[in-house]
Computed example of a mutant assay.
Amino acid sequence: MSTALVTGTSSGIGLATAVSLARAGHVVAATMRNLDRAGDLRKIAADEQLPIDIAALDVDDDASVREAFATIAARHGPIDVLVNNAGVPGGGAIEETPVESFREVMETNYFGALRCIKEVVPGMRQRRRGTIVNVTSIAGRTATAPMASYAASKWALEALSECLAQEMRAFNVRVAIVEPGVIATPIFGKGRPPIPDSPYPHGRRLMALFAARLANPTPPSLVGDLIRDIVNGDSWQLRYPAGPDAAPMLKGRAMKSDEQVVEEAGASDEAFLARMKRDFGLDLKL
């Protein structure tokens, strides 16, 4: 089996991916910014005797990335699999969101993944083998207000991934993009609180949609197991929607013109609720 490095493994999709890969026999370097949050993963690894090496890694910091990758390679040999999962939420109307918040989201969700990619690509190219899995979101394919900062970071990572896949194909290195829909992870409790009395209705509409999706939660293990299957397989497929709502949401967006999407976003709350009921069978409460 291979050596896999997974970022953002303290909870959610990253934790589930580390466990799923380790259960499949891979040696997993499970990285996170704050090792104080490793309790759940440490317990699972100990209880099941899984080959998981938990290590500190801040994807926002050049030196931290260099040192962590070098240390892991020294312990376990070349990194065969990289799963870029570390990410932060972002939201809020553009007018109401500080530019610094845009920078923070882009730093982690885009530049963090880029830093990690640049650490493994030379070795994978030279060995002519390897797999890179970048976890984006359906927000990397659909731009929905008021998620500009988050969607922009995920669109950027999608574009980077598509270019990387083209560059690495001649060197037998696979690149895959995993696009989760609404998955029950702690990220939904980490976003910026809504601004009271905002003139923009889109935030409360999106929160109502998330609440409805999370009422019947999709566990992060679904995404972790998908990533395991990608790593264990040999497919050159680029994009993988993940979760029961992901493919329908992407299909629904593809069927609409840009102008229709903009028009719908400017409609009344009543029209929004009716559309959610008609298109997705959801009875939302604002």
Rank of each mutant, 00 (worst) to 15 (best):
S2M: 07
G12Y: 00
A16G: 05
T17F: 04
A22L: 01
R23V: 05
R33G: 07
N34W: 03
N34P: 04
L35I: 11
A45K: 03
A45Y: 06
P51H: 13
P51R: 09
A55L: 11
D58A: 11
D58M: 06
A68L: 02
I72S: 06
H76E: 07
D80H: 03
A86Y: 00
G91V: 02
E96L: 09
P98K: 01
F102M: 06
M106I: 13
R115V: 10
E119C: 08
V120Q: 05
V121G: 08
M124C: 01
T131Y: 04
T136C: 10
R141P: 02
L164F: 12
E167K: 02
N172L: 05
V175W: 07
I177K: 01
V182E: 03
I183K: 09
F188S: 13
F188I: 10
F188P: 11
S198Y: 00
Y200G: 06
G203S: 02
F210R: 11
L214T: 13
N216Q: 12
P220R: 09
L222F: 05
L222C: 06
R228W: 03
I230P: 15
V231R: 08
D234F: 05
L238T: 09
R239A: 15
A242I: 08
G252Y: 00
A254K: 15
A254R: 14
M255P: 14
V261G: 06
E264F: 07
A267N: 12
S268Q: 14
S268E: 06
E270C: 11
L282W: 15
L282Y: 11
